[in-house]
């Protein structure tokens, strides 16, 4: 095993949020993170560290910061984001991400399904016996 030869001291890593928040919340956050990232990029071009600051600031999220990079990489590969490197005065360049046209379309679709989902859950919370109402607004008419 080459785990041992890692010289990085991780002994002081704070307990992972999973330990206290429960599995359900962890799963929900994982699913929603993608939407949150796209939302944060709606108006601004942002780099990874900045995105994390925005996400954790807006959502009261505890996040292992590294988890955002595989997600950004996948969104980029799927063509929802474009990326470019920008040289910085300090010498360490930043990789900026921006929403692509395709990303905007995806975000619009995700927002619709999020609102539907949230509305359904909310209704069940308020009226536990509620059944689905007759559809009034449908995304696609048959």
């Amino acid at each position: 095993m080459d785990h041992e030869d890692s010289l990085v001291d991780l002994a002081h890593v704070p307990p992972r949020p999973e330990a206290t928040t429960g599995r359900w919340e962890v799963q929900v956050r994982k699913g929603v993170l993608e939407l949150i990232i796209l939302l944060s990029l709606r108006k601004h071009e942002r780099y990874g560290y900045e995105l994390i600051t925005v996400v954790t600031g807006a959502m009261d999220f505890e996040l292992t910061e590294g988890t955002i990079y595989p997600l950004l990489s996948r969104l980029h590969k799927d063509g929802l984001l474009t990326a470019r490197w920008v040289e910085m005065p300090g010498g360490v360049p930043r990789k900026y991400y921006r929403l692509s046209e395709r990303g905007r379309d995806a975000l619009a679709a995700m927002q619709t399904s999020w609102i539907r989902l949230a509305y359904g859950v909310q209704r069940l919370m308020v009226h536990p016996g509620a059944t689905r109402q007759k559809p009034t607004v449908r995304g696609s008419a048959k």
């Binding site: 490197w85 920008v86 300090g90 010498g91």
Partner: peptide, 23 residues
């Protein structure tokens, strides 16, 4: 697909923030 690293310029409406360097 992959953007050539370090080829970007500083143009654009990017908030530069404070310079971040190496220790």
């Amino acid at each position: 697909m992959i953007h050539r690293p370090l080829s970007g310029s500083t143009e654009g409406a990017v908030d530069q923030g404070s310079p971040a360097g190496v220790p």
